[in-house]
Design a protein around this nucleic acid. Structure first.
Lengths: 212, 212
DNA sequence: AGTATAGCGGTACACTTGTTCTATGTCAAA
DNA sequence: TTTGACATAGAACAAGTGTACCGCTATACT
C-alpha cells in the first residue's frame, strides 16, 4: 500500500472513496457526497480535510469549481492504456485482417510500448510454435505490429508467403526483383522470394512475453 | 482515427475537447466550458448536442449532476497504467536495490502484463549485452521481475552470484545443498553454485522488447 | 405555399455545490 | 485553570451549473 503517514482515518477514508468514485463515475464526487460516504455531517469539515489533503500533497483542487479536485497519483500514471486488436495467431493460414472494430480479442498496452507508432495502426499477434525462435521470439509471445504493406531494409516484418500459404516473421531486405527474408539466427539460411510472392503485413514494433 | 460517422463537426469538436479537458484536469468540463471552447453561444445548444452524443453512444450522462458525463471509451481501456521502477541494468556489479520511491526512472506498463503479480513488488531491469541470449532475451530488452528472495524450481530468475560479482538470468533449480542455474539454451551447460553463494533477486514476470 | 424538423441563440429559473462564518468540544502545553 | 491549536457541526450565502422555454432560421418534404 501507499504510504499515508500523518493522515487521519477520515482523510484516508476520503482518499479511498474518491478513488473508488472516480472509477465508477469518471468524475470526482462533490463535497456533500464525500461527506455522506465518510459520515461527515458538515460540508465545511469535508472542505477542511480536503484542504489538509492538498497540503499533504495527496490532492489537487481548483477553487470555486464543482468537483474541481483530482487525486495525485503516486506510483501510478494517469495516462490511459491503449487497446489494440489481437488479430490472431501468426501461423494462421490466411493473411490477418481483423482490425479495431471492437469485436474480437483486444490487448491493453502502455503507450510507451508503442513509441511513436500511431496507436490506430497497431495490432497484435500471438506466436504459435517455435518457428520464430531464431528471431528471439518464443511460443506464446505476443508481437505488436504496425500495419504496413511496405517495409524498409532491416525491418523485422510479418510477411505472407503466397507459395507456402503461411505468415512468418523475418528480417526484410529488398534485393532488386526479389526480397531476402533473413532469419535472425546466423546458422539458418535466408529465404529468397519473388517480390510479388510475399506480402508484408506489418512491421514489428515490440514483443511481449509473459511468464505466468 | 476512430470512426465518428454521423456526427456533426460540432459534436466531434465536443468529443475532442472533452478528452483533452479530462486529461488536463481529471474531471469533465461544464456545459458552459464546452460552449466556450467550441464556439457555441448557448448552453442549451451544448446540452442539445450532448444528448445527441449520448444517443449515438459516445457519451454517458447523469441528469442534474454538474460535470456528470463520461466519454465512452472506444478502443481504449479506462484502466490506468501501473508505474514500476526501472532499477537499472542487469549487469550492474552490485545487487539491485532501487525501489518505488518515485525517484529514478519509472516505466509504465499495462496491468495485464503483470498478471496476478502485486504491482508493488514489480521492478524492471534493462538487459545489457547478449549474455542472456540463451534465455531468448536480447540486448536492450526490458525484463519485469517480481521481487523475491526465493524461487520455485523452473522459475526464470535474476540471481546475484557472489563469486562472479554479477547478476544473471537463469532458470532456477534447487538440488539439495546447491543450486542449478540452467541456461535456456540446451547447448550450454548449467552452472552449479552453493546455495549460500547465490542470492535470488527476483522472478521474471514478463519481457518487453521495443523495436523502434 | 404550407409544414415539419433539425439546429441554433438567448434567457430565466431552480437546483447543485463550494465557501464562509459562528459556535462547540477536545486535548495537550503553559 | 487557562490558553491555543485542532477538529467538528450547523447554517447561511454566493457562485456554479443543468434545465426548460421561447423564438428564429434553414432545409427538406408533401
Amino acid at each position: 500500500m501507499t504510504k499515508r503517514k500523518g493522515l487521519s482515518a477520515r482523510q484516508q477514508h476520503i482518499l479511498r472513496y474518491m478513488d473508488q468514485y472516480m472509477g465508477e463515475h469518471g468524475y470526482p464526487p462533490t463535497i456533500r457526497e464525500i461527506g455522506a460516504a465518510t459520515h461527515i455531517n458538515s460540508t465545511s469539515v469535508v472542505n477542511y480535510n480536503l484542504n489538509k489533503l492538498v497540503q499533504a500533497g495527496y490532492l489537487e483542487r481548483r477553487d470555486r469549481v464543482s468537483r474541481g479536485m483530482r487525486l495525485v497519483k503516486w506510483g501510478r500514471a494517469n495516462d490511459n492504456l491503449l487497446r489494440v486488436p489481437l488479430a490472431g495467431r501468426i501461423v494462421a493460414s490466411a493473411p490477418v485482417e481483423a482490425y479495431a472494430d471492437g469485436s474480437g480479442d483486444m490487448l491493453d498496452v502502455a503507450p510507451a510500448t508503442l513509441g511513436t507508432t500511431p496507436p490506430g495502426k497497431v495490432f497484435a499477434l500471438t506466436v504459435q510454435g517455435d518457428s520464430m525462435i531464431d528471431a528471439m521470439i518464443a511460443d506464446g509471445d505476443i508481437v505488436l505490429l504496425r500495419r504496413a504493406d511496405t517495409a524498409s531494409n532491416g525491418d523485422l516484418v510479418a510477411v505472407w508467403l503466397a507459395d507456402e500459404e503461411a505468415t512468418t516473421l523475418k528480417r526484410f531486405y529488398h534485393e532488386g526483383e526479389r526480397v531476402r527474408l533473413q532469419p535472425e539466427n546466423p546458422t539458418m539460411d535466408p529465404i529468397y522470394v519473388d517480390a510479388g510472392q510475399c506480402r508484408v503485413q506489418g512491421v514489428v514494433v515490440a514483443v511481449i512475453r509473459h511468464s505466468h
